[in-house]
Design a protein around this nucleic acid. Structure first.
Lengths: 160, 160
DNA sequence: AGGCTAAGTCCTCTTGACAGACTCAACAAG
DNA sequence: CTTGTTGAGTCTGTCAAGAGGACTTAGCCT
């Protein structure tokens, strides 16, 4: 049971999205905020960090640099989600759901995700390929998958 | 459309779980790793950081400090998930799913989540309260909810 | 030419990550 | 009862990253 965590999808995803401001930026881009200064204002990200994160996100193909032009101004860049970026919405919904349950103010959640077509609130459901719906985290077990790599012998001590 | 992000559930959740190593630690605790030294070995977290994160997680009620005793040794602490902690599993599954899709090695995913009762792989489904299943991120829209707070007038500039 | 504005860069200060050595409290062996 | 061992930390020094204010740049508009 000694599996190397180096190629874990969770770790890798966190490597891309896990830095302090990245998901906050994505949240706001999902909310339609696409311009540098607006992002600074909304997210509260320091300029330097925003520059940095945006360029990483563009490099990784999560955002794409587009351009817009307000009449009477020069063209400026604007940042939009790619497919890869749009697909992070499940992560954001999962974070919001957990937050609503455990850290929201008594007045209720400050942000809702709604279904565009019917206006009903959106939630995540955990389900297995057999169609069973899962409500208890204890019903889920983690297992090394096909891409798992045994860790080098050296580390195989200390684990009881 | 000027809503203060201060009380956003996503931001707050990230405030608790968003630091560099926190979710990696939770991933491993989900995997049954519960002891200080084992966590260091598996996660690769620096000792100091682990000390720090564990104490924050315990303070926040995400982990609980239990104790175990190997025969012939003294009692030592071990860290276990509380309900609040167990409920982060959706976040971990969302991260894994995104990672499997976009950053996994060609051999396949290194970690799978399976249904304990039937062994089938577990996935997240997005669904609205009306029962519509959602497959396209563009079908989801974010809206300020009941707890949303208008931002102070000062900031209401710059937004187009 | 001079001004305005969005989008950055530059610079400094502080905070946090990281690694390796050190400490501390049982228990066990001599 | 002294010494060794082991797991769980703390201490210390170095170095990268975050935070935030001042400065720069490029095009459009008087």
């Amino acid at each position: 049971m000694d599996w190397s965590p180096e190629n874990c999808s969770i770790a890798r995803t966190l490597g891309l999205l896990g830095e302090k401001w990245t998901l906050v930026i994505l949240r706001d881009v999902f909310g339609g905020i696409r311009r540098f200064n607006d992002l600074i204002e909304y997210s509260g990200v320091p300029r330097q960090v925003l520059t940095n994160r945006l360029s990483v996100l563009v490099e990784e193909g999560i955002l794409r640099r587009d351009s817009y032009q307000e009449p009477g101004s020069r063209a400026r860049p604007e940042y939009r989600l790619t497919e890869k970026g749009l697909d992070t919405y499940r992560i954001l919904i999962a974070l919001r759901e957990w937050g609503d349950r455990y850290v929201a103010d008594p007045e209720g959640p400050p942000l809702e995700h709604l279904h565009r077509d019917c206006g009903a609130p959106v939630t995540l459901t955990v389900r297995c390929a057999e169609g069973h719906e899962i409500h208890d985290p204890r019903e889920v077990v983690g297992r090394p998958g096909p891409g798992a790599v045994r860790r080098s012998a050296k580390a195989a001590s200390g684990t009881k």
